[in-house]
Simulated scan of single mutants.
Amino acid sequence: MIQVTINHDEKRHVSSFEMKGHADFDEHGKDLVCASASTVAFGGVNAMYKILKVEPTIQQDGEGGYLHVTLPADLDEELDSQLQLIVRTMITQLESIVESRGSYGQYIQISYSQM
């Protein structure tokens, strides 16, 4: 199962997120759930770089199955607001995978942790 943890403050301002595990929906290279979740996460990170020119701190496992992204805390209010919009969009897309008609929720779980 892919486990996604969203770390936020009391105002739901996201400071980091982590994805770990494998969906095991299908064999490696054919796993639709894994490919979808990975595309959403890396698309979000790429949008941070390409659209906003923001560089989060990224930790990955060389074997795959692990991504931890820490967002910069020293951004001006407008840039931070744009960054939060990208992150919220990414979270909504991941939630859409969980809630999809194909019962993919058994392969991916999202939790929220207040820091």
Rank of each mutant, 00 (worst) to 15 (best):
residue 1 M to K: 08
residue 1 M to F: 06
residue 1 M to H: 12
residue 3 Q to W: 00
residue 3 Q to S: 11
residue 6 I to L: 03
residue 7 N to M: 04
residue 8 H to N: 12
residue 12 R to S: 12
residue 12 R to Q: 13
residue 16 S to Q: 09
residue 16 S to E: 12
residue 17 F to P: 03
residue 17 F to S: 03
residue 17 F to C: 05
residue 18 E to R: 11
residue 18 E to Y: 03
residue 20 K to E: 13
residue 21 G to W: 01
residue 21 G to S: 08
residue 22 H to F: 09
residue 24 D to P: 00
residue 24 D to L: 03
residue 27 E to R: 05
residue 28 H to F: 07
residue 28 H to V: 12
residue 28 H to T: 13
residue 28 H to E: 14
residue 29 G to R: 02
residue 29 G to F: 03
residue 29 G to H: 03
residue 29 G to Y: 06
residue 30 K to T: 11
residue 31 D to Y: 09
residue 31 D to E: 11
residue 32 L to Q: 10
residue 33 V to E: 03
residue 35 A to K: 08
residue 36 S to Q: 09
residue 38 S to H: 11
residue 38 S to K: 07
residue 38 S to E: 04
residue 38 S to C: 12
residue 39 T to R: 03
residue 40 V to K: 01
residue 40 V to L: 13
residue 41 A to G: 07
residue 42 F to D: 04
residue 42 F to S: 07
residue 42 F to Q: 09
residue 42 F to T: 09
residue 43 G to I: 08
residue 44 G to A: 06
residue 44 G to T: 12
residue 45 V to R: 02
residue 47 A to V: 10
residue 47 A to K: 03
residue 47 A to W: 02
residue 50 K to G: 09
residue 53 K to C: 04
residue 53 K to A: 12
residue 54 V to E: 03
residue 55 E to Q: 14
residue 55 E to N: 11
residue 55 E to K: 14
residue 55 E to I: 05
residue 56 P to I: 10
residue 56 P to E: 04
residue 57 T to Q: 14
residue 58 I to H: 01
residue 58 I to Q: 08
residue 58 I to Y: 02
residue 58 I to T: 10
residue 59 Q to N: 05
residue 60 Q to S: 05
residue 61 D to S: 14
residue 61 D to I: 02
residue 62 G to R: 11
residue 63 E to G: 07
residue 63 E to D: 14
residue 63 E to Q: 15
residue 64 G to D: 04
residue 64 G to I: 14
residue 68 H to R: 12
residue 68 H to E: 01
residue 68 H to L: 07
residue 69 V to S: 05
residue 71 L to T: 08
residue 73 A to W: 04
residue 74 D to A: 13
residue 74 D to V: 09
residue 75 L to E: 01
residue 75 L to A: 05
residue 75 L to K: 09
residue 76 D to F: 06
residue 76 D to Q: 06
residue 77 E to H: 09
residue 78 E to F: 06
residue 78 E to C: 00
residue 81 S to E: 13
residue 81 S to W: 11
residue 82 Q to K: 15
residue 84 Q to M: 03
residue 85 L to A: 13
residue 85 L to E: 12
residue 85 L to F: 10
residue 87 V to I: 15
residue 90 M to H: 02
residue 91 I to G: 00
residue 92 T to N: 06
residue 92 T to M: 06
residue 94 L to S: 00
residue 94 L to T: 01
residue 95 E to N: 11
residue 95 E to A: 01
residue 96 S to G: 14
residue 96 S to K: 13
residue 98 V to A: 03
residue 98 V to F: 02
residue 98 V to D: 02
residue 99 E to I: 01
residue 99 E to F: 06
residue 99 E to M: 06
residue 99 E to G: 04
residue 100 S to R: 11
residue 101 R to Y: 04
residue 101 R to P: 06
residue 101 R to F: 02
residue 102 G to H: 14
residue 102 G to S: 13
residue 103 S to W: 02
residue 104 Y to F: 15
residue 105 G to T: 10
residue 106 Q to L: 01
residue 107 Y to R: 00
residue 108 I to W: 05
residue 109 Q to K: 15
residue 109 Q to R: 15
residue 110 I to L: 13
residue 110 I to M: 10
residue 110 I to D: 05
residue 111 S to N: 13
residue 111 S to E: 11
residue 111 S to G: 07
residue 112 Y to H: 14
residue 113 S to H: 15
residue 113 S to E: 15
residue 113 S to Q: 15
residue 113 S to M: 14
residue 114 Q to H: 08
residue 114 Q to E: 14
residue 115 M to Q: 15
residue 115 M to G: 15
